[in-house]
Design a protein around this nucleic acid. Sequence first.
DNA 1: CCATGGCA
DNA 2: TGCCATGGG
Length: 348
Amino acid sequence: MGVTELGKLIPPEVRKQVELKNLSGKIIAIDAYNALYQFLASIRQPDGTPLMDSKGRITSHLSGLFYRTINLLEEEIWPVYVFDGKTPEMKLLEIARRKKQREEALEKWMKALERGDKEEARKYAKRALFLTNEMVEDAKRLLTLMGVPWVQAPAEGEAQAAYMTRKGDTWAAGSQDYDALLFGSPRLVRNLAITGRRKLPGREEYVEVKPEIIELEAVLKALRLKDRSQLIDLAILLGTDYNPDGVPGIGPQKALKLIHEFGCLEKMLNTVLKNVQWPVDPLKIKEYFLNPPVTDDYKIEFRDPDDKGIIEFLCNEHDFSRDRVLRGIDRLKKALAKRRKARLDAFF
DNA sequence: CCATGGCA
DNA sequence: TGCCATGGG
């Protein structure tokens, strides 16, 4: 979920809409959990049932990861998937809350199915999803077999992605959420998908969705903030994963006004915010965004795919179509060979 | 979300 | 070639 309210404050002119072609040659640190959740939510039958193998194990995340990664590589966009590590203590409340929401959605999904209401069923099925350890391990295994790098973050994946981008090892963080900006990523890419059409929640309508680039500096400038620290303060007022409700009664506009007026959260705590009950010390949240756990223990290296391994894993273990997977592997190899050649040429 | 095949 | 409907596992 992340800092959804913050999105409302980011104006269109800061969201640079681009074509995939414009991202060619870039290495992007993709928030793996974010991507996997999206696949899990969207790769479903009309009644909400996810893709499953013959043993009943969900495979939607593998299908999405396999094909999207190949698509990106064909566009010469180089993904590095960053996986979440240990959940920060501060987030446990939010995790528990999401779990409860999922359980409620699961019940509604089942009831809608009984009624035969596919539309409702699908809606709740999306909310009932959750990522298991097995799914995460599956995803890592598939990436390794494909020769695509992935990084194990010590804690929040978006913090690690931000760190790698700050160092210049990656060009941007890739996620639908805005948290990477709070963690200091100079650049965020959203909507990193191939098919540019997305169904609107309400009706049978579709909108064109293009990848968008959001630069931290541009956000600060547009909101007239002096640094990232103020952006973090703003986010804390609105609600983050560590204080999901934000400050009751304070919406985007009022929050921004307060930051401009007081300059920082510290100066509000004993004044305008003195009666606010915080689930977590807000200054602790701020410190976390400023200095999250990250690691230098990673390598961004693309390897030759293991064809046999991919076939064994996807086709034999998870019942993917052999034809489709073989075509995928073929495209994958060509794309990676192209990178190899381009790098060799650059060397000489 | 993505691949695929049919149809204009 | 582009658009749409359908199935993927």
